[in-house]
Every structure is written in C-alpha cells, then in structure tokens.
C-alpha cells in the first residue's frame, strides 16, 4: 500500500506492506542510522520522531505514517552534530551503535522540557540502553549540552 508522509521535511511517497515496521522500511530506503538492538521494544536504539515525539521505529507500523511527519537523525544533522561533538569530546559515544537513537531522544528532550532537573533527564532517557559507557559520560554530555550545572 502507498503512504504519503513527510520524511525529514520532504514530502515522501512510499510503498509499504501492512506488516512492515518503520525501522525496516527506513533501513530499506537507505536510512542506515536506524539500528535495531532488540526484538522486544525495549532498547531505544531505533528511536525516531513521529510528529516530533520520540518513538520506537521498530514498533511503529509503517502504514501508520500516512499523513505523519517522521524525522531521523539524517533530518536534523546540524543539531545532532552539535550534541554529538559534546558526546564525542567525553568519549561517550564508544561503539556508537546506540548513539543515533540516543541523540534523537536527547534532542527531543531538549525540545520538550525546558530547564529539566537531573531526575527528569534520567527519566526521559531511561528507554535508551547503552552497554559500553555506563551512562555517566552520556549524562555529563547531556548536562553540558543543556547547560545544566554539573553536580
């Protein structure tokens, strides 16, 4: 079936099957920043924005994107690079495999919450698992990015 939607600000028409998930559709079309880390909707690697909200693209059926706006890290390259530079300066990208989904959640957090507390930051990012960094370095980077004073 055909869907018409906005992808990274571009009007897009794609053919999808009814049981296809967005993560697979995006990868198939060359959006290779989309990573899948689990089969159970609980790692956060595949996070993209649907109508601006961070959502698991592995769990969102592609046909449901009809009329919606989808954003991947490719679509917010500059904003992502700004945070990525801070993350990389901390060394907290490590293997990098979870970074795109993580960055998309961090940017969403910045858009959604004004002046978040440390607790709110942790809560917002809990759905993004990372096995390399132990989260501390990511947290330092996020705080620097958001201008939250380090404890």
């Amino acid at each position: 079936m055909q869907i018409e939607f906005t992808l990274n600000d571009q009007p897009t028409v794609w053919d999808v099957s009814p049981d296809e998930f967005l993560a697979d559709t995006l990868r198939k079309h060359g959006f290779l920043s989309i990573r899948k880390g689990c089969n159970t909707s609980c790692c956060g690697l595949c996070t993209v924005w649907i109508d601006g909200k961070p959502t698991l693209s592995c769990t969102a059926l592609s046909f449901r994107m009809q009329g919606k706006s989808v954003t991947t890290i490719e679509g917010v390259a500059e904003e992502a690079a700004e945070f990525a530079r801070i993350l990389v300066a901390e060394g907290a990208e490590q293997c990098g495999f979870c970074s795109p989904g993580f960055i998309m959640t961090v940017l969403a957090l910045k858009h959604e919450l004004a002046a978040p507390t440390e607790e709110e930051i942790v809560h917002y990012l809990t759905g993004n698992l990372c096995r390399c960094t132990g989260y501390m370095g990511q947290m330092r980077a996020v705080k620097t990015y958001l201008g939250v004073t380090q404890r």
Binding site: T55, L56, T59, A108, G127
Partner: peptide, 8 residues
C-alpha cells in the same frame, strides 16, 4: 521501559 516505548 522508556519514553519512546510509552509513545507506542
């Protein structure tokens, strides 16, 4: 789980 899960 997490925000992106609860959006789903």
């Amino acid at each position: 789980i997490g925000v992106q899960f609860r959006h789903a």
